[in-house]
Simulated scan of single mutants.
Amino acid sequence: MSLLDTLNLSYPIVQAPMAGATTPKLAATVSNFGGLGSLGSGMTAPNVLTGQIDTIKSLTDRPFMINLMVLSKQEYTTIDTELPAWLSQYYRDNTIEFTLPKCPAQNFSEQLQVLYDNPVPVASFTFGIISAEQVQRLQSLGTLVIGTANHPLEAKAWADIGADAVCVQGVEAGGHRGGWLPQSESDPLGLLTLISQTRTCTDIPLIAAGGIMSGQAIKAVQTAGAELAQIGTAFLTTDKCGINDTYKQALLDASQDKRSSETRLTRLFSGKLARGLLNDYLRDFAEFESADTLPPYPQLNAMTKFMRAHASQNMDAEHLSLWAGQGVALVKKESTLELLERLVKAL
């Protein structure tokens, strides 16, 4: 049975999770339309996540997806690196006060427990892989399990532990890279190459992500071997998206030639590779980009949070993480429903 049938979808569209940008209303709007709406919950406290799941369930009776970031206990509890000198100097120069948190990220085990206690139709995972036992426990509760992969070997690893599908994320994708193996960083693959290479090592159903901005692109990835298309950047400038106005305007400016639509893969915001619009922060501190010298994720993410909060308060797009895929020049100011209707017209 195809994913479309398994999930009872009307259209082969998955709205990307995008932690910090998605909202229960956005997810429910997409699901009610006939796609798969999702909520990026990797940065959400467990008690808040429970409430958000309840909200989505109150807004739709269609399938929806919750996405979590897989982190070890060591990763989510430990800050054992120094604040980089250049970042410390930036905070002094701009009189930005900061106090590093005790833990740099949410407790993944407690977040996962929420999905056991308050089951959801679909759970997806990024930044790592869970155990076969955890996959089976979710499935026993009626939850479909979807992994994220930037490399065929990561997709095979998810298939081997019994996942129901894998989202293959090409290098074109905006936001954080979802893989975890060294191979996915040393030679990042474009989406169509990733789909074809993954098909040679596993027959697990695939969801394609990366640079998909139109109905024609959805058809192209289906032709290449994916069953569904996951779309993120196109939703960022729609009405149900939760990003701030400064970020949204920067994306629209990139689509209207008012600022460059050039994107970069960078570790400078979080310590983990992510694609976003080029801005002054990425230019000014490019020399510190090396993974060897930057604190790892999620430690650097916790350290730059104060800069990003200050930039948001001051409507300063040049020091925000403007996550966006390579298709950003095609974004439009429109309602979420208008985008969905535009996408399905070409299918």
Rank of each mutant, 00 (worst) to 15 (best):
T193D: 11
L83T: 11
G325K: 06
N8D: 15
V331W: 06
N314K: 12
L322M: 03
H151N: 05
A21M: 10
G175A: 00
A209I: 06
R259H: 09
A132P: 05
L36Q: 03
R199F: 15
L192A: 04
Q169L: 13
W86A: 06
N32A: 09
Y281F: 15
N244F: 00
R275A: 01
H310C: 04
H310L: 03
L282E: 02
Q15H: 10
G271S: 13
R283I: 15
E154S: 02
L68S: 12
G190R: 03
L251Y: 11
S131N: 11
S124V: 11
L39V: 15
Q89H: 05
A16M: 05
A165W: 00
Q249C: 07
L138N: 05
V145D: 01
S41P: 12
Y116T: 01
A224G: 12
E338A: 15
D292H: 12
L189K: 01
L181F: 09
E227V: 05
K332E: 08
M18D: 08
G37P: 07
S41W: 09
T81Y: 04
L153A: 13
P296N: 12
M307H: 03
K73W: 10
G179N: 04
L339I: 11
A226K: 09
L26Q: 00
T29K: 12
E133A: 15
L339K: 11
G215Y: 07
L265W: 06
I204K: 03
S88F: 00
G211A: 07
R342P: 12
E227W: 04
F288R: 03
M43F: 13
K332C: 00
D160P: 01
T148Y: 08
A85H: 05
I212Y: 05
R62K: 15
V168G: 02
M303P: 10
A21T: 04
L141W: 07
N94T: 06
A317E: 10
T238R: 10
D54I: 06
T55Q: 14
V171I: 01
K102W: 06
Q136E: 14
W86H: 06
S88P: 01
L206E: 02
I129D: 02
F235K: 01
K248D: 05
L322S: 04
V168N: 00
G37L: 00
L347P: 00
F285A: 00
I207D: 02
K305E: 13
L330Q: 08
L3M: 03
T143S: 14
E133D: 14
S38D: 11
N67L: 13
T23R: 14
A274W: 01
A163F: 03
R267I: 13
T202P: 13
T304S: 13
A250M: 13
D245M: 15
Q15P: 10
D203R: 13
Q139W: 00
L339C: 12
L236F: 11
A274S: 13
K102G: 14
M1S: 02
I207P: 04
R177Y: 08
L181I: 10
D187F: 01
M213T: 07
E287L: 01
I195A: 10
M307A: 06
L330N: 05
D93T: 00
L49V: 07
T60N: 07
Q136D: 14
S41E: 10
T99R: 13
M315N: 11
K305A: 14
L144N: 00
L228E: 02
L251H: 12
L59H: 08
V70E: 14
S290E: 14
A254S: 03
L228G: 00
P182N: 11
D117G: 02
T95Y: 11
K305R: 14
